[in-house]
Write a protein that binds this DNA or RNA. Structure first.
Length: 582
DNA sequence: GCCGTTTTCGGCCCGACTGTTTTCAGTCG
């Protein structure tokens, strides 16, 4: 069994234990263990072989045994027994808002409910409402939750969520009672997908703000409306939470609600090591913890003017939200070694863009004008090659024609923005390329991508990509896995091996900035860039308004610890030409 | 189940909101 499958098993064990009413800390130990294993960036077999699994934080003796057994045999008696003792439907019920392990256990124990369908019937017949601790409203909420289960469970691509969230934030900032307002949560951390929208406001008069929020346009349902916190469901099922705190607690709360959870746990531990206690209400002396005064009424030991002051109090450099994932940022901030992350303004031009010659919606001239309007100094065109017939890929003749067209455009002096000739050349099933070397040589650059035969085995797919990377006329590799976030899994490919091959052959790997792709995943970039891998943040634009999507790529590049020096298109035109040998 | 140690047990983040209750349990983030 491979690592990802074992992670799933551990997570399921956690959920099953929770439903059985096990000790919550034991449950958490499985969840932590799953996470620790998931972020392990070494080969699991090697770690087990070297007897080093137990050294991983969060994996102890019991988990070492279970993981090893699963890895070697693909089976685990403990898990099988646990699984057969809990009906399948119970785990599904965990998706219903307001239903947790205790309530699920109760309807199962007392009403014999084992499936979502049976649960709905029990709610409708009034059986659920008559249980102790349950009531009419609980039953109604469950029915509603079952009805909207799919919409409620859905995640959303960051870019889409941001388009919804940003106008709300703007409106919040206009309210006179609002002193400050920010996004929080995974949206602020710029995760590639987000589950809900978090807003944080500083105000001394929360009432009117809450009233506005719960009645604003687009609210379908109010799931909570309190003094400091409200939650609403928007039309498309997206949940939005608003929290309002006193102005002097704003930055503590902002840090807290930005997360991630794992980052916060580390930060609180760090506070404890210094005799302090950190929460959304402030930093307090540890020993005063059990006094019978509300934290909201107690004076914190510092009054931060920004989030940076909180980090400073814990002897750390400021950590930007994108890096708060407990993936080394605590250690780097302690050592004073935070990276200078790339920003939107560092981007000087963009490669990998399409025109009407293949499946784009704008002409070469329109794309060039749009790039220039965005302040970019260069634009790389890379229309599809002939094997992508579904995208009207160019054959040799049409590509040569386009090369001439681009040359004429550059010489016309009509645009300040320089255009590079290129191609998104298909990597064929056997790893050969859709154009021969003679034609590729004429191009300023080329992006090699996979658009067919997705179902090859991981071994064959990896070999196919590596073979393409060994072609001397290829500049960069396009979308490494071909994933479409929340829509299609990527094809099976051994990414670390592909990174090795790109490094060995001096090739760039693209960070495809389409909000649907964000591929190669940010989790691989830090290590790869430290080894010298060069990145190109490519919008893969098929229309003029998609050129700006490079910004979505910058977001995840920042999550991947990338600095301008790691990114080709942060370089000025002259240096890019030199890099491409022009 | 993990972890650390004043080293083998006891703590493990913690506060807000809802719906039930009549002071609190469960859920959520």
């Amino acid at each position: 069994m491979d690592k990802a499958q074992i992670v799933d098993v551990l997570e399921e064990i956690g959920a099953l234990l929770e439903l059985k009413g096990e000790n919550t800390f034991k449950v958490r130990a499985y969840q932590n263990g799953a996470r620790a294993l998931g972020t392990l960036d070494r080969d699991l077999g090697e770690v087990i072989e070297a007897d080093e699994l137990g050294k991983v934080d969060g994996i102890g003796k019991a988990l070492v045994e279970k993981i090893t057994t699963l890895h070697q045999t693909g089976e685990l008696e403990y898990y099988e027994k646990l699984r057969s003792s809990v009906p399948d439907g119970l785990i599904e019920m965990m998706d219903i808002p307001g239903l947790g392990p205790k309530k699920i256990k109760k309807v199962n124990d007392e009403l014999g409910v084992e499936s979502i369908d049976a649960l709905r019937e029990a709610c409708e017949s009034g059986k659920v409402a008559s249980l102790a601790g349950f009531g009419k409203k609980t039953a109604e909420k469950i029915i509603e939750g079952i009805k909207n289960r799919e919409a409620y469970a859905a995640r959303h691509r960051w870019w889409d969520a941001f388009q919804v969230a940003d106008p709300i934030l703007e409106e919040l900032r206009k309210l006179k009672e609002v002193e400050r307002a920010e996004h929080a949560g995974s949206l602020r951390r710029r995760m590639e997908t987000v589950g809900d929208l978090d807003f944080l406001v500083a105000s001394k008069k929360p009432g009117p703000i809450m009233d506005w929020f719960t009645s604003m346009e687009g609210v379908k349902e109010v799931s909570a409306h309190g003094e400091t916190k409200s939650s609403v469901r928007l039309d498309d099922g997206l949940q939005a939470d608003l929290r309002i705190v006193p102005p002097d607690r704003f930055f503590f709360a902002l840090h807290h609600f930005t997360g991630s959870k794992d980052h916060n746990v580390r930060m609180r531990q760090r506070a404890l090591e210094r005799g302090l206690s950190l929460s959304e209400w402030g930093i307090f002396p540890k020993e005063s913890k059990d006094e019978d005064v509300k934290l909201s009424e107690r004076e914190p030991v510092i009054t931060p003017k920004s989030e940076a002051d909180i980090f400073k109090k814990l002897d750390m450099e400021f950590v930007v939200p994108e890096l708060r994932e407990d993936r080394g940022e605590i250690e780097a901030a302690e050592a004073g070694e935070m990276p200078e992350l790339v920003t939107d303004e560092d981007i000087r031009g963009v490669f990998h863009n399409h025109t009407t010659a293949s499946d784009g919606r704008a002409t070469l001239a329109e794309m060039t004008q749009a790039a220039q309007d965005l302040g970019l100094d260069y634009l790389g065109i890379a229309d599809h090659s002939k094997a992508s017939f579904q995208a009207s890929g160019l054959d040799e003749e049409r590509l040569e024609q386009q090369i001439a067209e681009i040359k004429a455009l550059n010489e016309s002096g009509d645009f300040k923005c320089h255009v590079f000739t290129g191609s998104e050349v298909d990597i064929l099933r056997d790893g050969s390329l859709d154009f021969d070397d003679g034609l590729l040589k004429q191009l300023d650059y080329s992006v090699a991508s996979i658009h067919n035969a997705f179902s090859l085995s991981e071994k064959d797919m990896t070999a196919r990509i590596i073979k393409a990377l060994e072609n001397e006329h290829i500049t960069m590799l396009g979308h490494v896995t071909g994933r479409l976030l929340l829509a299609r899994e990527g094809y099976a490919v051994d990414i670390p091996k592909v990174i090795d091959a790109a490094l060995a052959n001096g090739k760039i790997i693209e960070l495809n900035a389409s909000p649907w792709r964000l591929d190669m995943d940010w989790r691989f970039w830090r290590k790869a860039s430290e080894r010298g891998l060069l990145c190109s943040i490519n919008p893969d634009a098929h229309a003029i308004d998609q050129l700006k999507l490079y910004r979505a790529g910058v977001s995840v590049a920042r999550k991947g610890w990338l600095s301008p020096k790691h990114i080709l298109n942060c370089r000025p035109l002259k240096e890019v030409k030199a890099y491409l040998g022009l």
